[in-house]
């Protein structure tokens, strides 16, 4: 049968085909990727447990959690910014900068502990607000704006300290912020370090903000379609700046955690942490183009990274290879995401 329009007079349209097929019901995209990440985490845990009897011990699990805390907190900060469709490369050096500010406040100025903590978090929020201003108001691409901030903050940390660490020897209890265990005091069998507790509190708080508040809903909406949000009469610049500021404040918390663990603010530290954090976010299924992802995914992503590092170390794999494996995991995770999206 030939239905092509050969005749020169208007002909009837060819018979159209039956009713549309309904869109298949399927899991929301983010949930699928999270499931995949969670399954990978379980596989890793089971695999390492079978490979070495030393792996699945309470002490080792606590070590893994403790090792996750700083990267995890930074990754939570990165998640919020990435969900808006942006990126923050300054979170690593900002963490260090905040640690230095804590050192200045506590060791040099001799302020009480809570004020030092507040100073660090406040400095983080201000630096985040600066990044947010560059991105939202001055329309500098996030990659460039935060690359600049990364270098500025690194330089400032070195200038303030004269490139020497600031120790917290005069602040009793500073190391307990990350190393102590409030939970262990109540439940002696469960010596969860405070650093891990902080990670879960930060992650829980961020999960609440993202899923239950106006700020969170706009965070997703900005990443999904910023222009549509602006044309809905929303002050998109202000909300975006708020997200960067919130992320900055969380970097302040990370700064407290890491300086507490080292009992010092190490001004040369920090570079590279941002990439680990972004890696955790990506492994956790958050889309780098924004609008899609969850804190839970990021937490799983961060755990996958530290389980890998810890497990490979127990199996006596050289640290160089651990880096190779982590890199391969990132590529695999994003490839799996691509495959899923093409099918969808």
């Amino acid at each position: 049968m030939n239905t092509s329009p050969q005749n020169s007079k208007a002909s009837a349209p060819p018979a159209s085909v039956p009713a549309p097929v309904p869109a298949p019901a399927r899991l929301a995209g983010g949930a699928q990727q999270k499931l995949l990440a969670f399954a990978s985490l379980i596989v890793l845990l089971v695999g390492f447990s079978l490979a070495s009897p030393n792996f699945f011990q309470v002490s080792n699990i606590m070590a893994i959690l403790q090792a996750t805390s700083v990267n995890g907190v930074l990754a939570v900060a990165a998640t919020a910014v990435i969900l808006t469709g942006g990126i923050d490369l300054s979170i690593g050096t900002l963490m260090t900068f905040c640690a230095v500010i804590a050192g200045v406040a506590l060791t040099w100025a001799g302020l009480p502990l809570p004020l030092g903590v507040l100073a660090a978090i406040g400095a983080g929020a201000l630096a985040g607000l600066a990044s947010g201003t560059f991105v939202a108001r001055m329309k500098i691409p996030p990659f460039i704006a935060t690359l600049g901030m990364m270098l500025v903050l690194k330089g400032l940390s070195l200038i303030i300290t004269g490139a020497r660490p600031i120790y917290f020897n005069d602040t009793p209890g500073y190391t307990d912020i990350s190393q102590g265990s409030l939970i262990g005091m109540v439940l002696p069998g469960l010596p969860v370090p405070n650093g891990v507790l902080v990670l879960f509190l930060v992650a829980g708080g961020m999960a609440f903000v993202l899923s239950r508040t106006v700020l969170g809903r706009y965070t997703y909406a900005l990443g999904s379609n910023e222009e549509a949000v602006r044309l809905s009469g929303v002050n998109t610049n202000a909300w975006k700046m708020a997200v960067y500021a919130l992320a900055g404040a969380i970097c302040g918390i990370a700064g407290i955690l890491i300086s507490s663990r080292l009992n010092s603010a190490q001004p040369a530290l920090g570079l590279g942490y941002e990439l680990d954090a972004i890696a955790a976010v990506v492994i956790g299924g958050t889309s780098l183009s924004g609008g899609r992802g969850t804190v839970l995914g990021t937490l799983i992503g961060a755990l996958i990274m530290s389980v890998l590092t810890n497990g490979l170390r127990i199996l006596s794999v050289a640290p160089e290879w651990q880096t190779v494996v982590t890199g391969a995991i990132i590529i695999l995770a994003v490839y799996a995401d691509q495959l899923r999206r093409q099918r969808g």
């Binding site: 809903r217 997703y220 909406a221 999904s224 379609n225 222009e227 549509a228 949000v229 929303v234």
Partner: peptide
């Protein structure tokens, strides 16, 4: 698609987009 909707978000969120507060 470009200026009216956040396509990846649900119907409820899109309806509330201009009135969230």
């Amino acid at each position: 698609k470009h200026f009216g909707l956040a396509l990846g978000m649900d119907v409820s969120d899109n309806i509330a987009l201009a009135s969230l507060s």
